[in-house]
Nucleic acid binder design. Structure first.
Lengths: 232, 232, 232, 232
DNA sequence: CATGAATGAGGCTTCATTCAT
DNA sequence: CATGAATGAAGCCTCATTCAT
């Protein structure tokens, strides 16, 4: 699925100047300025003047492209969400070695979610979720929730192949994700960790998480196949 | 452990008449007003006037007790943290039946962390963590982190008793906690869930989480004892 | 008398291609849009964007035809004045039965001046008269004042015919006009009346007004003739 | 009837500082600044900054005393109305010589309504009546309308005394007022006249107006008494 | 020439903080 | 000391006007 800026396909690329609020370059420029300011200061503390300065556009122009501060913020968050979760689930597309796939995906997930940029964006969303609850809900629904569905689909396939035995796949998918993040998310989002975990740390956590997950849900068949593979 | 207002030990009790900002009753009154307003509206949207009204104190008085809005907010968060995490770990104090204890503790933890009030408080902290990173760090360190240490201690005891076999107890403690929350925390904090999970749901999640945890870490001895107990 | 756009005689028609701001159709189009917006919202609250939209012309084009917002407004008011007072005095052109003529004219005058559209236009002019005093002055001079002159001329003729006896015809003309409006103008312009008076009400007022006027100024001759006419 | 600033009687004059938005001196100060600016520029063109400067109070203070710009404006207009129409009708209180009383009252009325200050205030009200129709309506109702009622009462008394014979006293009252203003109001409000009419001019108009009025409505009895009085 | 996107000064309003009472 | 009226900087947003296309 391709994540693009909303409406971008409506833009006519005829010669001449684009219509008001239609120039994708300028829109991107505004969003980029907004990103720097909003992500850095949060919704309330960010001022439209700051964004104006950072984006290098005039105040009036921003208001041609976005109705008001809140809408600009929401557009930014949508963008961020698109960027963050893009390409995150490709690993799950080709069913290969189960353990390896889980580790690989868990690592990608963990690295992404705990990267400095993404944490800051999530912090911004959380901070604004009180004033604009739908914002956080939409972010979660179109971001983490979709990822969760992909994980469920993947686990279901593994069940069908007789490699896993799971009563509640929905719950198991959550468990898997949490095992891969094991504390990192909360630490990061509360600024307890001020920088992203190292690759090594993440690998350690994910390997262990997958291990726990498989010990709980893998079938005899899975372990037999794995043993066979290793002795080969 | 005694939970007191931060800095309270810095207050000097020299002389007879209490110095400015020394009356603990008035202080509590201010904090209580601040709680209602800050938790409800978030840091930026809350106005000192709101707090004044809610606390029933004059503006000047607030400024005697707290340097400024930010400091008042920080003091409130300290208080909240104390309230939230108090009495949360008592279950772990008496080592009894392992599975039961884990389920009991996991339930308490999950209920607490996902309760509407606590989620809102955490959202407020997260939202402010960009502007005041130490705030979130301190919150995490004195709240969740301490809990984590208690869990570690508990797991270590179980290991010593030969009931669990764990390589990395620190990591296992995180895994346990996350298994008990399985997705709930993120769902709540992003306002995807707008109300706290039901008791039944939490029990389902915790039971399953403990199960996974024990399948991964429990020893033969543990299972044998458990079987014996059940057949008794 | 030819009512044209003010200044129209200043437009030079030199050369072949019409100079900037010369196309009278486009000019009318702009004025028409301006009318709808200015009359509806008043000078300050009307935005050039509104006018642009309403007139179906681009902003740049408006600024070719009119120096700025104020000048456009003044041009519009000139137009309005022309429209309002055109054909208002025809009744006075043919000297016929005095009382009937006065009633007929008074009615036309009263209906016109108190019609919703005209009241709104006058309100707009009055509201702008502080900022642009000449605007109101010109409006009055070329509108009501000219009407007043026509009334004076008519009264003079009646005096010459021996039907009226008037010391100060100028004053009498004002008195006549005011008697025909008897309170309506002030009520309308202050929005105390929110809709135009009914035909019946106006007729009642005008009939009475003319009666008062004639009792004060008509000669014996007039009354004798009138009596003769009635008994015939 | 005493016209005072709204709520002024609620002010407690206890020692110390007055409550927020309660200090009548400051309130008057703000209104005075608002008067200068609003009356001079009209509602829309006046800026709160102008008023701030003119009143010598800070912006915040204005907003303690008045909800917003519109409310401040309305308060000002109420004040103005009170000031304008105060003491205007005292002449009618003691029934004395009819013609003299009418002339005296007509003069007071005419002088007042056409004074520069009052005209400007009325212009401001008219200009704002499009945006805030109730404002103009209230102004008219509590100002000119009340005056009209007083005139009606006076005329009724004269009718009862057998000095006047009037079918429609309501209409006659309007006619009387208009005869006393004979064109002046419209001339002033449209800025055709840029300064108030002279005392002599007003006397001329009013004398003539009363003459017309009496010729139309006075009884034989009135003229007989008047004749008797003069020959005495 | 017409267009309308862009500008940025300036409008109304809020609110953390101060300080006279 | 407590109070809360006053301050004024700064926030969001509008709109007359310009000028590149």
């Amino acid at each position: 699925m391709v994540e693009t800026t909303a409406d971008s396909d409506l833009l006519d690329l005829r010669k001449g100047r684009p219509a008001a609020g239609q120039d994708p370059v300028k829109r991107a420029q505004i969003i980029e300025g907004a990103r720097r300011v909003f992500i850095d200061k949060g919704f309330e503390a960010a001022s439209m003047n700051d964004i104006t300065r950072e984006a290098g556009v005039s105040k009036g122009t921003i208001y041609v492209y976005f109705e008001n501060k809140e809408e600009l913020f929401e557009a930014l968050i949508e963008e961020e969400r698109g960027t963050i979760f893009k390409n995150m689930y490709e690993v799950l597309d080709h069913f290969d070695d189960l353990r390896k796939t889980l580790v690989k995906f868990g690592t990608v997930l963990s690295v992404k979610i705990t990267s400095a940029k993404v944490i800051q964006a999530q912090r911004t969303v959380v901070g604004a979720s009180d004033r604009i609850p739908e914002l956080g809900a939409r972010f979660y629904e179109r971001g983490p929730k979709r990822g969760h569905d992909r994980v469920m689909a993947f686990l279901n396939e593994a069940v069908e192949r007789g490699l896993l035995k799971i009563d509640d796949v929905d719950l198991a998918a959550y468990q898997f994700t949490e095992l891969c993040l094991a504390g990192l998310f909360r630490q990061c989002i509360f600024s307890y960790r001020t920088k992203a975990p190292s690759q090594a740390e993440i690998e350690h956590i994910v390997t262990s998480g997958v291990d726990v997950f498989l010990k709980a849900y893998a079938t005899e068949k899975f372990f037999a196949e794995e043993k066979a593979l290793q002795s080969a």
